[in-house]
Nucleic acid binder design. Structure first.
Length: 234
DNA sequence: GCGACAG
DNA sequence: ATCTTGTCGC
């Protein structure tokens, strides 16, 4: 497990964080289709916290997109760099996620994030931010709706309905399993909403959440527990 | 003004 | 995110 280095100038206040979002928002690329589902590699990233001990652990798990087999993984530990503030989640998670991605022995391909990309109050969620910083294609798959309205999608797997910011479709409520609560998909960087939804369905053949986030979630929790005093002898 | 609000 | 036992179901 590698150690997180917090990037120089990482914002410490909400005001500075908002300014960073304003500055980076224009660098998001929305006109590339993105890699086709089922080919190449797909990487899930997730983060777990122990705020009591000021510890954050991130995991990145690379899957073969065709078989969904795990082909590589990495973790990173560090101190929590920012409090949780709705709309500023990226400032809490990204340093650790970057460290985990850099520790991978291979290229990540498409990155699947826990949370939102475009479906964000300022159109610059975690997935957008991570995409701009890394240049990688990214999408966001969230477990809960944030601030956008949507109609309940049809009851069968594959049904979807738009997440609306007024007239603009900023994401989609997508049913990944029959009769199960939908997930909330949005574009991060260099991927189309169509492609993002296709990837999400491809990655969730059996459970509600994509295999990428299931693996990343399990790994960062396991790694965090291994950090509990007596974990690795320090 | 008050509440809601990704993880 | 995290605090938490058993329990219902495939």
């Amino acid at each position: 497990m590698t150690t997180v280095r917090i990037p120089a100038g990482w914002p410490a206040t909400e005001e500075r964080a908002l300014a960073v979002q304003d500055e980076l928002r224009g660098r998001v690329v929305l006109d590339e289709p993105g890699p086709p589902p089922g080919t190449g590699r797909v990487t899930g990233v997730d983060v777990a916290y122990d705020d009591e001990r000021d510890v954050v652990v991130a995991a990145a798990v690379v899957l073969d997109a065709a078989t969904l087999d795990v082909v590589a993984e990495a973790t990173a530990v560090g101190r929590v760099p920012f409090p949780y503030v709705p709309g500023l989640l990226a400032f809490r998670e990204i340093p650790a996620v970057l460290a985990a991605l850099e520790a991978l022995p291979c290229a990540p391909g498409l990155v699947v994030c826990d949370g939102y990309g475009l479906a964000h109050p300022r159109r610059f969620g975690l997935a957008s931010h991570l995409g701009v910083l890394t240049g990688l294609p990214t999408i966001g798959v969230a477990k809960n709706p944030f601030v956008f309205a949507y109609q309940e999608p049809g009851t069968s797997r594959g049904s979807a309905s738009p997440l609306l910011a007024g007239e603009e479709e900023v994401g989609r409520a997508l049913r990944t399993q029959d009769g199960i609560k939908p997930v909330f998909v949005s574009v991060g960087h260099r991927v189309t909403l169509e492609t993002a939804c296709a990837h999400t369905l491809h990655l969730a053949p059996r459970f509600r959440l994509p295999e990428t986030t299931r693996h990343a979630d399990a790994l960062c929790r396991r790694a965090l527990r291994a950090t509990d005093v007596a974990g690795d002898g320090h």
